[in-house]
Design a protein around this nucleic acid. Sequence first.
DNA 1: GAATTAATTGAACGTTCGTTTTATTAATAC
DNA 2: GTATTAATAAAACGAACGTTCAATTAATTC
Lengths: 181, 181
Amino acid sequence: MRQLAAEVGVQAAALYRYFPTKEDLLFTLMREHMEGLLEAWNAARPAAVDPEARLAAYVENHIAFHIERRHATHVSNMELRSLSHERLTQILKMRTTYEKELRAILRDGAEEGRFEIDDVGLTAMALIQMMTGVIVWFRPGERLSIAEVTATYLSMTMRLVGAKIGAYGAARPREKDAVAL
Amino acid sequence: MRQLAAEVGVQAAALYRYFPTKEDLLFTLMREHMEGLLEAWNAARPAAVDPEARLAAYVENHIAFHIERRHATHVSNMELRSLSHERLTQILKMRTTYEKELRAILRDGAEEGRFEIDDVGLTAMALIQMMTGVIVWFRPGERLSIAEVTATYLSMTMRLVGAKIGAYGAARPREKDAVAL
DNA sequence: GAATTAATTGAACGTTCGTTTTATTAATAC
DNA sequence: GTATTAATAAAACGAACGTTCAATTAATTC
């Protein structure tokens, strides 16, 4: 708390005007992170019904959102153990809601015969881990731009789910975040 | 340290006969984890030269190793920040060594035209994040066995790298750990 | 501009933590 | 069986932590 306060240029005690406890501060960060993710997806969710377009939108939104919030994401992923049982449940519930969206896309794609998927649940987890993992090694301004990373991850995703058309995979740079809220 | 000691049935002070500091204890855990991983891969590394077989061996070894050591892996991934700069560098060097093995496989496969890969470095990171991510949600004795999970991940991997033959992906349950040292 | 309210500080409290010290028990050597 | 060494326990130390409290400053109201 002292460190945090110093970074804001204030005394530790001042933080307690805004958050009753350290855990409240953490929880607020995490809740807002998840709310933001769900809102971003609702805004980016395409009207399209074909699974390829929906999956592409999901991947692009997920990667853009997390890269732009690398530090918040890192905290959200690392400090789950510091939450009370009740609050942990709340956060996990939001996560499940978000993951369900992906599973729905994968299921639809599989049922329509456009995707080739062994296990929808497993594939969803694998994809999310893969995509979120970007924040571990990505540093802005290094070898690859966000657009390049996103394009590569999109093409990997499409192959992973066995999408028939490669059109979505080829270098199709993401249009400059115009969509996200 | 007190908690740790209690779990071993000993007083906290007794631990200091074996490790001079808490960080030494952590570092030893991490170092042995990485050494074990490299040894396991060296033992499992196939004589084969075809990229598909090598990649399959890499995936199977990686998943088996990490699932069997879920807790050590979790600590190793979460507590990197608690290491001194020097020791962090040491661990990261071992990681790089291990990842290079995967990149070599991917590069060879791409050069031989058997894999379809946009970016070898990115693909290696994506695969490792995806595979290691298993420990986040996998609980032994639940819906899927280790063999089933491994088989599914293998098939996802093969598709992700654009391997031409699907033979490696289909349900090919891993033979009961006979190989690992 | 005095009175009141809000925001911030600086110091302190109580706990927990990693670690050290001293005493005690267990094991080994002669 | 005594002497010596090693392993453990019990207690304490000092620092860091989350948090509280009294005092002070800043902002707002009339």
